[in-house]
Nucleic acid binder design. Structure first.
Lengths: 339, 339
DNA sequence: AAAAATTAGCAAATCGTTTAATTAATGCTA
DNA sequence: TAGCATTAATTAAACGATTTGCTAATTTTT
């Protein structure tokens, strides 16, 4: 194991002070009037011995870790794993690394992790806030650490956030379903006050009201066993003889599809929130309200990095349009309807 | 913004030295003969003011960061995002945090990131090694940093690794396909010398040899545009009139399914490596060789943590069995075969 | 030519911990 | 009672960087 070379080793080898070396390495040669000759000499030697600063020492001194904390609901959900991928890429380009965790609806763990990330002095937070996290997030702000909320926000806590235009997305999906001559159009959602769920419900309502039709809304318990979800979705669709259904998350739609397939019940017309590989390939392929992950994460990182750098004091509350991707599930003539 | 409380603040407030406080906080009170009364006094006060040590300072002094570096091929691939989820959970239980990145077949980025993670003094690495990383990984070992390879390993570099029994998995899947009276059974794989690909090929071969049948092997370029993959898979299946096909990765199978669907060509019997939500719900549902992610990650973290702790000097080379999950795609009588 | 200003670089403090070495007080043995 | 252990705590030196002031040498100004 070869020993790491330190800044003091360089100074000693060249017969100069560590200060000079440090200034040069931090691009302060000009500002601190270090001669060009000296600068070149140091830089050459640094390259030769392959010196890399110890980030821990650097961070301890400067207070900057160049690490961002990412807290998502569930990293294994394709929506979030895609988000994680883009975020890592964007953060890397901006010189940051990501430390992540899944919260899995465990409020206690979420709180602990936020505290732990704060103890690790992360430069900023990216959070998909679950309910009950208001205080914790307010606490982060009080400690003056930049935070950007994502996917949903907390109305009572004033922070940056980047979300999709869920209301409009739900409105357009519902309207699309209604325009295909479906009368009984339902919404399958969650017992949740999170903004994205609230907005999707509002969008659905707006469309239903516009068409002056009765609404059918089924809410499921957050984090309930999948079997319960499947049973309830099935019951809702069958008992109400739904013509069409909008699912407010991709995993609810997946549960619905599983339930229907298991009982060999023909699909109602349907659409779902959030893209999923399954949806393109399912037979029939599934219409979705797709969030623009690339743009969302871009704005996200830009906002966070700008805040960390101390630029732009005012809060950014960003809403990105969704895209309705129409596939077979919302328009096909189903098999038994042929006859 | 309330100021962080430091160990020196505690010492000052209680009129004692920082050493005493530090010993007590690090559970060395007994060993260092600190009186019980003092221990209790300090612990009570620490709890009262909610002191949390600055991890940076701690890490700088001890050399332990309690951070693990995770480098995977693509975090958005459902196999790896599941791995990421389990790893984070297991690591958390062991007191570690995860810093991750996707390498996306970019060897240069992989090297840079490994170097950066080393500069950050990660306590250990978890890597799915791509080709060309031999030297870099050997370099990590030379710096005495624990590494566990995952999903595949590098035969020429002696490290811990945890992989699935790919050969047996491929053998059983192929045999299963052969036993369903298919004569022309092909393998769709990648131009890659990675061990998992090599083993899957070997497993396929073994089964084909056992049945004394001609083998059909199509390899695709790693990281090629999906359209190319789709075209080539289609051509392979159609031109060779394949009865059945084994896909060596889940995303190859997804590409294949897309291509067949787009051209409305009936599916051959098929099986694929690695689970995917799509596969359970596809019509027909897809038979898979499933890796036991929970067990893989458990062994992985155990191995890594044990090495970091300095226990167990010898290298652990672990192979976990795969499970063949038989679904419709490998056994159903297809529509056009009814007539 | 003395005073002022600029240039080029350095010593030492600092970030917040851990830990090796030391000390002062007390109890025990001979 | 002098000498030795033991106990309970302290002092000060790390860890490896950044940064605030300072100094000495040179140049410019008056």
């Amino acid at each position: 194991m070869k020993k790491r070379v330190l800044i003091s080793d360089i100074a000693k080898a060249l017969g100069i002070s560590v200060t000079t070396v440090s200034f040069i390495l931090n691009d302060k040669a000009k500002e601190k009037r270090i001669s060009d000759a000296m600068t070149k000499r140091v830089l050459d030697y640094v390259k030769k011995v392959g010196y890399k600063p110890n980030q821990l020492a650097k961070s301890l001194r400067t207070g900057q870790t160049k690490i961002l904390g990412l807290l998502v609901e569930d990293i294994a959900n394709p929506f979030f794993s895609n988000v994680a991928k883009y975020i890592e890429r964007q953060a890397y380009d901006a010189g940051y690394h990501i430390i992540y965790c899944s919260m899995n609806n465990d409020g206690q763990k979420a709180k602990e992790l936020i505290q732990m990330f704060m103890d690790r002095q992360v430069d900023g937070f990216i959070i998909t806030p679950s309910e009950g996290l208001e205080d914790t997030i307010a606490n982060i702000r009080q400690n003056n650490i930049p935070v950007v909320l994502f996917d949903r926000y907390i109305p009572t806590v004033d922070t940056h956030y980047v979300v999709s235009d869920n209301k409009k997305g739900a409105y357009e999906a519902t309207k699309h379903l209604l325009e295909n001559e479906n009368k009984r159009v339902g919404l399958i959602s969650l017992y949740s006050n999170q903004t994205q769920m609230r907005d999707r419900l509002e969008g659905y309502m707006q469309a239903m009201d516009e068409f002056q039709l009765q609404s059918y809304i089924k809410k499921l318990q957050l984090g309930a066993p999948e079997q319960d979800a499947k049973d309830q979705i099935l019951e809702f669709i069958v008992d109400n003889k739904m013509d069409a259904v909008l699912f407010s998350t991709n995993y609810l739609a997946v549960s619905g599809l599983k339930a229907l397939k298991e009982h060999r019940i023909p699909l109602p017309r349907m659409a779902a929130f959030d893209e999923h590989t399954l949806f393109k390939l399912h037979d029939p392929s599934i219409t979705v309200v797709s969030q623009n992950i690339e743009q969302l994460t871009k704005e996200l990182i830009q906002t966070l990095v700008a805040d960390i750098a101390g630029r732009s004091k005012e809060l950014r509350k960003i809403t990105i349009p969704c895209e309705l991707i129409i596939r077979e599930s919302s328009i096909v003539t189903l098999p038994e309807q042929i006859s």
